[in-house]
Nucleic acid binder design. Structure first.
Lengths: 182, 182
DNA sequence: CTAAGTGCAAATGTTTTGCAGAATC
DNA sequence: GATTCTGCAAAACATTTGCACTTAG
């Protein structure tokens, strides 16, 4: 099941091209942060929630539910977390401000960390599918400014820039060859 | 578990609060534009494609597939278009550059016109779910500027601002009346 | 004519849910 | 100890697809 033959260069994040994204201000571990949130809601920190949170924050890659299910729902050791539980915890982590949906690819919601990783926006190359992260304070400022003009109280924003990355927009180059661009 | 009591006021677009969004530069009718596209692909302009295109471009509201199905799949006059056909045509209109997905709400893809309507961005109220459109030239300028710093060639962008709209951020307020908000 | 398009019903794939037993506070 | 959680299997949904029949070009 889950056909999945897509050619999507899936979710690759171009860290090299990113600006000042990468500085990490660790205060509390993700699991701790999650526990705090759960407390405020009168909910409980369970083994499953802890396992899933650790798995998710083990790296900074983007991911979707299916990937977590692949990794966690078939373990035989004590670290198994079922499909339903995974689907139930993800919205909690979102509500906790630790995750956010950034896209939908192949019929699935794609998440990224919203905790322990600096705020940033994305440039997406329509050719190589590369996701370039960038950080620019003026974006936030402008958003803030526009919002206030509309009496809107900003909590977050998402800016995605679509186009061609440096590599893909560079014509076959040098020569007199016909550039088959576009 | 996972509360989820969302009050989704679905897809309402607050035109009043919108800025200069509204100027319309009509060149060719949507149906014509669509026909042109179909021609280039060796495809045919059918009654169903024409009906659907007209229905979609009759107003500038955002919509999802289900809404079109509601309106078109149960007609008894000659204007019926089936569910499958609707789902088959939507991607065509996207490819034609006439529509684009702008969000996902309640598990459905939300579309908006990408033809005959000026470019704009969105503010989305997390409480009443209202979609406020706004247009601000500085957004495009800033995007352009940032992109070029990264050697990125911009083709389009999407900016969504999340937060609370004027109404929802106003505290229960003044009166003792229960405002059944909205 | 003949390739492309449509409607229907059935299939797919993701996400949600009711329940009974298990675990946290 | 009561409430919240988990896993399971089944359900709910949105979207897609196979097929026989229509239709545009």
């Amino acid at each position: 099941m889950i056909a999945e033959a897509s050619t999507h260069a899936p979710l690759s994040v171009d860290k090299k091209a990113a600006d000042d994204v990468g500085t990490l201000s660790t205060k509390v571990s993700p699991v701790e942060k999650c526990r705090e949130f759960l407390l405020t809601k009168g909910l409980r920190m369970t083994r499953e929630r802890s396992i899933l949170t650790e798995e998710i924050f083990a790296d900074h890659e983007h991911f979707d539910a299916e990937q977590l299910i692949q990794r966690l729902a078939q373990r035989t050791d004590g670290k198994r977390v079922s499909r339903s539980t995974i689907y139930r915890i993800l919205p909690l982590l979102e509500e906790a401000g630790m995750l956010r949906k950034v896209a939908r690819q192949d019929g699935r919601d794609v998440y990224e960390h919203d905790y322990g990783y600096p705020r940033h926006d994305h440039m997406i190359c329509r050719k190589c599918n590369r996701l370039v992260e960038f950080k620019n304070t003026r974006v936030r400022e402008l958003v803030e400014e526009i919002a206030s003009e509309h009496g809107f109280r900003t909590e977050a924003h998402r800016l995605e820039v679509y186009g061609l990355c440096r590599t893909c927009s560079r014509p076959p180059e040098s020569r007199h060859k016909k550039l088959n661009l576009l």
